[in-house]
């Protein structure tokens, strides 16, 4: 099962907007092609005594789908996002407080989980929460011809043999979280990780550019 390395792997166009809501402490919307997600962060705020942890902040992630009530699929994606955020936030600076991250799906056209991760990172940066590294999400799909497609659309996801989402950190481009469905070989997995690491460089550069643009005004 050899994977032919395509040299024209592409990411769809992306865009983001920060501080678009007035109530949350930090908010951001992230758009990848037609998939768009809105994220909001509240924290560090008061925490219920039943949920407080004596030496760290309690991070809660809520994913709201567009239609209907949250189901098991949302819960498992919440778990993935929460683990990634806990690894990159400095939670010990705010013990006995709560951080709440709410993600609202606006439109789903594939690469849902990576869009959630990207929006989460931008919202956490906007809220000014201390982080020790940035993270981004990249989705890879392996289609029936054993080609790797990054940032697949919903149609491409349906036809794929395997679908993988990786959360990559900004300091050493290592994998923080991976979520895979479908069958693939070890070789293909390593190829996809290598492709995701390369793609994450574009995304981190985008983060930097948007933050630079945000602070470009002399106040």
């Amino acid at each position: 099962m050899e994977v032919c390395a395509r040299t024209n792997v592409t990411l769809r166009e992306f865009g983001c907007e920060q501080t678009l809501l007035s109530r949350p402490d930090g908010s951001a919307s992230f758009v990848q092609g037609d998939t768009s997600v809105m994220a909001a962060v509240y924290g560090p705020a008061e925490v219920k005594v039943s949920k407080e942890i004596y030496d760290r902040a309690t991070l809660e992630v809520l994913i709201q789908p567009k239609v209907g009530l949250p189901s098991v699929r949302e819960r498992s994606q919440e778990q993935c996002v929460r683990e990634t955020c806990e690894a990159s936030l400095l939670l010990t600076l705010h013990p006995r407080s709560s951080l709440t991250l709410i993600l609202q799906l606006i439109h789903d056209d594939g690469s849902r989980l990576s869009c959630f991760l990207n929006a989460a990172c931008m919202a956490l940066m906007d809220a000014g929460l201390p982080m020790n590294c940035l993270f981004c999400g990249v989705t890879c799909a392996i289609n029936a011809d054993s080609e790797i497609i990054t940032d697949p659309t919903a149609a491409q996801e349906k036809e794929s043999r395997a679908l993988m989402t990786f959360a990559i950190d900004s300091k050493e481009q290592r994998v923080m979280m991976s979520y895979t469905t479908g069958s693939f070989s070890v070789h293909e997995l390593q190829q996809c990780i290598a492709v995701s690491q390369k793609a994450s460089e574009n995304i981190f550069q985008f983060y930097r550019d948007s933050v630079r643009r945000r602070y470009s005004k002399n106040l």
């Binding site: 395509r6 792997v9 070789h187 492709v195 574009n202």
Partner: peptide
Amino acid sequence: TALKTDETSVEMTDASETA
């Protein structure tokens, strides 16, 4: 506070070798 980029291609030259 908003920024947008176009479709970008990913540099894949040495990715397959590292893999």
